[in-house]
Nucleic acid binder design. Structure first.
Length: 119
DNA sequence: GCAATGACGCTCT
DNA sequence: CAGAGCGCCATTG
């Protein structure tokens, strides 16, 4: 095995983050800070974003359900990639306003039980 | 080892 | 609500 820091071991480091993201139900979104807190890394929202950025192109992880605390799809370095995330969320039923923001009070995921706003 | 970067969040103005 | 500043930590040059 490698001396230190292979790709496999790197996933082990963010395994907590990936586990939380995988728990996000379809049609709902969670913020980076929320995922970090649930993963046991409060205040380390950046790590969540970095962990998701390290994901492979064909990952089965619902990374598209992770947005920033403002309910916006964070702009990525490559143009068009942000549009793809929004497209996936819209397919799940997530609605965007004119400003491209999501109502976290309605589509925000809560691991304890949603407030059943619209329903 | 240092400096710069990045899929962020909170506080102050 | 919007903009600017600071903190956060892993990766890269």
């Amino acid at each position: 095995m490698s001396a230190h820091g292979t790709l496999g071991e790197r996933q082990g480091r963010f395994a907590r983050i990936y586990a939380v993201v995988r728990r996000i139900p379809r049609g709902r979104v969670a913020s980076y800070g929320q995922v970090a807190a649930l993963a046991g890394l409060p205040g380390r929202a950046r790590l969540v974003g970095y962990a998701l950025a390290a994901l492979p192109d064909g990952s089965a992880l619902p990374w598209q359900r992770v947005v920033n605390a403002r309910g916006e799809v964070s702009p990525r370095a490559e143009p068009g990639r942000d549009h793809y995330q929004r497209h996936l969320l819209e397919e799940e039923g997530v609605r965007f306003d004119s400003g491209g923001r999501i109502d976290l009070g309605r589509f925000g995921w809560t691991p304890r039980g949603r407030p059943r706003a619209g329903g």
